[in-house]
């Protein structure tokens, strides 16, 4: 559906995106995840046709829309876009905003489409309102309905939830996923929030300093990060230094099972990989963040190394308590 090949983007002398390639299948939902300023929004704007790349190609439905020679106008790409600031037209009502991209406005079919979409986003009674009389969440829904109305081939979402509060964000994210799947529309989302990415996307690309670090499912990113940047950005965890002893890898918490890897310098220890028990490496609890079903504790080893561990919410822990740590599993992710 969407295919991006070797995309490079630059503003003047400043290269913001280097050699990015990925693809999204029909009906799939992709996500570009990365810290702010990593170039993810620029990629989105290039797909929409607002940026001309320095190099690379963009294909929509196997049709070349952007390359060195081709630059199809944004209005001819059959894409929908939801903007960070929603960009609703303040001179139009909600219903007029939603029908804006429809060809034959006023016809029965287009009116039915507007009503269907407003119902889908739960705004059926507010069609005659103007955008300034809506809350942030409501504006978000209208923006989504407006982008979906002309049945685009691909929907682009630029940090669509960043202006909303936390609770609303999570419920909206799963609603958006349901709507996209219902309409069968492929989508590409850009965000810096991994919870959002995990909630919506089938596949996620982690972007850092304009380069695609890894492209894969949420599980793949969490369990098999390609490098230490992805490991640090996705999920919580600690990178511990490694050394070799008689052909086997060791870290401060004990020996590891990974035998076939030749070159590595650190291993990724997720909080759930460590057990707190009666024997093992001695450590002291530094801080506790109680989260109900479980607690996230920061512990310090004797050499000063700090790491995060997860323990059951009912387990009694307190700051300053001496504990002993062992590894839960031995096939940790090793990284260069």
């Amino acid at each position: 559906m969407l295919k991006i090949d070797g995309l490079c983007l630059a503003y003047g002398q400043h290269q913001v995106v280097s050699d990015v390639s990925f693809a999204i299948p029909n009906g799939g939902i992709g996500c570009l995840l990365g810290p702010s300023g990593c170039g993810k929004s620029s990629i989105l704007r290039a797909i929409a046709g607002f940026e001309r790349p320095v190099a690379g190609e963009i294909l929509l439905h196997e049709r070349l829309v952007t390359s060195n020679e081709t630059m199809l106008a944004p209005e001819k790409r059959r894409i929908g876009m939801v903007f960070q600031d929603f960009a609703l037209f303040p001179h139009l009502t909600v219903a007029q905003n939603v029908s804006f991209g429809l060809k034959d406005k006023g016809s029965g079919a287009s009116q039915a489409r507007v009503e269907q979409l407003l119902e889908m986003v739960g705004m059926q009674s507010l069609g005659k309102r103007y955008s300034h009389a809506l809350s942030g969440g409501q504006q978000q829904r209208v923006a989504l309905a407006r982008a979906l109305a002309p049945k685009p081939d691909l929907l682009l979402l630029d940090e669509p939830f960043s202006g909303l509060d936390l609770e609303l964000r999570e419920s909206l994210a799963s609603q958006v996923r349901d709507i996209l799947k219902l309409e069968g529309i492929s989508a590409l989302l850009v965000t810096h929030d991994q919870n959002e990415a995990f909630a919506i996307a089938d596949e996620i690309g982690v972007l850092h300093q304009g380069r695609l670090q890894q492209w894969g499912s949420a599980q793949a990113l969490y369990e098999r990060p390609a490098n230490s940047m992805v490991a640090g950005f996705v999920g919580k965890g600690t990178l511990l230094p490694l050394w070799q002893e008689s052909g086997a890898w060791h870290c401060v918490l004990g020996g590891l099972g990974n035998k076939d890897i030749q070159k590595a310098s650190v291993c990724l220890v997720r909080p759930e990989d460590v057990l707190m028990g009666d024997d093992g490496v001695p450590a002291t609890i530094v801080s506790i963040s109680y989260q109900g079903a479980q607690s996230l504790c920061r512990v310090a080893l004797e050499d000063g190394t700090e790491l995060l561990i997860r323990c059951h919410g009912r387990q009694f822990v307190q700051i300053g308590q001496a504990v002993n740590l062992t590894l839960n599993k031995t096939d940790l992710t090793l990284l260069a």
């Binding site: 704007r45 209005e75 894409i79 037209f89 685009p152």
Partner: peptide, 24 residues
């Protein structure tokens, strides 16, 4: 972003001028 929203919804640059900028 309003210009861009207009473009993705099928307006030409002239259309953006007459249907979004002029009324606003």
């Amino acid at each position: 972003s309003m210009d861009q929203a207009g473009r993705t919804l099928g307006l030409s640059p002239q259309g953006v001028l007459t249907r979004i900028h002029l009324p606003l």
